[in-house]
Amino acid sequence: MTDTSPLLAAENLVRHFPTGKGQIVHAVNDVSLSIAPGETLALVGESGCGKSTLGRMIMALDRPDKGSVRLLGKDLARMGRRELHSARRSVQMIFQDPSASLDPRWSAEAIVREPLDNYRIGTPAERRDRVLYLLEKVGLRPDQAKRFPHELSGGQRQRLGIARALATRPRLIVADEPVSALDVSIRAQVINLLCDLRDEMELSLLFISHDIGVVSHISDRIAVMYLGRIVEEGETATVLNAPQHPYTAGLLESVPRPRPSQRRQRAPLEGDPPSPITLPSGCAFRPRCPIAVDLCSHSVPPLAATVPGRRTACHRAGETTLQETSHV
């Protein structure tokens, strides 16, 4: 294995759900992404843009209609049950709502131990030690090991979810909005914890979030999704400081900033995101786009490299007008 090969590579993923009324929800439309070892990729977008569906396909919790997910070079869809079981050991997930993803009848200790039992990792004594080590790592006290989820605060529950995800020594963690249910004063604690553990254990992280502030702190690269497609991708600081896609620009401009002296003069983007059932023709962002031209209504812009390490799906990317619409 060489260091340059991606840990995870998703290619041309498509996932559509039938609504039961003969309609189709276009959740994910032709998405490709890759994550290198030790890298944190943030998947950003508004509700319904397909970011969680994408995360679930990467976790092999859902099968793509088209396309492939390769973990350490191996296609998940071609794996048998046993092979998939052992592959899952290296990909673990942290969920948004810790109370919904922890069994209320299990103690903290039992919750963290379960993956170790499941994968038969170590002897019973070693498992016990590992559980205590993990609880300590995420900042839970030894006396909290016997507690049940309802006896812990929201922040402590999320720490427990992180300990469980780390139990099998995964290479990649998919974190789906892991701090958005937490209060601000607790959020910072959990973000710092995730960053520390990632650096210490050389983890890769797919961080799914709608919070630009959090993403700017935690990620190396960022992929912006809109209606099932990645519209822009690149190194975090470059994308956030000089967005090339008008949606990214509008999204960034919409984030309220804790600076009362820098108020916006108007809402940056008009309209609502269209429904993923009836997608507009051409570029899905066209109905809200301030710089759309005729071409945008009949051709879907491909996600193409604009500069090295940077991809944008916009017919007008690179034109000077686009730079002007982005904020300074």
Binding site: V184, S185, R187, A188, I191, D211, I212, G213, V214, V215, S216, H217, L240, N241, L252, V255, R257, P258, R259, H327, V328
Partner: peptide, 8 residues
């Protein structure tokens, strides 16, 4: 404690 993004 608030994670904010400020352009530039």
């Amino acid at each position: 404690a608030t994670a904010e993004f400020v352009p530039g």
